[in-house]
Design a protein around this nucleic acid. Structure first.
Lengths: 129, 129
DNA sequence: GTGGGTGCAAATACTTTGCAACCGA
DNA sequence: TCGGTTGCAAAGTATTTGCACCCAC
């Protein structure tokens, strides 16, 4: 029974994440939280991101390169660009994939805000033209 | 114009992957290919996995921990266990998500065999009971 | 005061890369 | 022979962890 204690650093990390919709990496979070806590260390950022993830306050998204984080935990899905690894929100209703083969095969096992579509984002698509 | 040359090691890696449906990691591939090529190095395994991925002969699946690889490139989706990180195939038709919000929002940008569902596999579910 | 949290640095896990020797076309 | 490929080891990137000190309760 580890009693969680308040920490200004953790609060700052969470509120920074709440202000962003682009799923920043631990390093980006570190750079920004440093504006408020110049002495914070990357280790502390990682430790708190792990804590917040375990508590369900944020979501960790593992992609190529560094993991990305999202404080918006309402059920939603993600589109991930194969090229630039941008993570974009998809505002998809849970019921939306209820009739898919996946839903039939893994009925009851698939959690919300956990579907990820991969492809090319518009920026990367247009750079190819 | 780099002319690709035949390599027994690369062939072995590819045929090992074709024999597996559990999406092994580079290290597992290394361990197994070593039975045929005792002197092969991890670096060579990684180099060839990158080459095969670029050629579209295999798929790289980035998850927590080590990346996983799949030589079965026919369009299909994956179910990934949050707990043990197992990657299971979902035999889902491409048309299956054509009416979803994701498909509408990212029309033409979503590639085949690239949708990933997250949840708990049956083994991990039963261990919780 | 006590135990969780922090900064720092070292360690770890996974992957990439430089280089000389090797091998396929 | 020529240039791609390999084994080995060192380096690189992302993340975790041990430890002494600090701070919330």
């Amino acid at each position: 029974m580890t009693a969680l204690k308040y920490s200004r650093q953790r609060e700052s990390i969470k509120s920074f994440l709440l202000s962003r919709y682009d799923h920043p990496t631990a390093d980006t979070i570190y750079m920004n939280v440093r504006k408020e806590f110049p002495n914070i260390s990357l280790g502390t950022v990682y430790r708190n991101l792990a804590l917040l993830t375990d508590m369900g306050k944020i979501i960790k998204i593992t992609t190529e390169g560094a993991d990305r984080f999202d404080a918006h935990v309402e059920p939603h899905s993600h589109f991930i660009c194969r090229e630039c690894h941008a993570v974009l929100d998809i505002h998809m209703k849970n019921e939306d994939f209820i009739n898919t083969e996946a839903q039939k095969e893994f009925s009851g096992q698939i959690e919300g805000h956990t579907v990820r579509y991969f492809g090319l984002c518009k920026d990367c698509l247009s750079k190819k033209a």
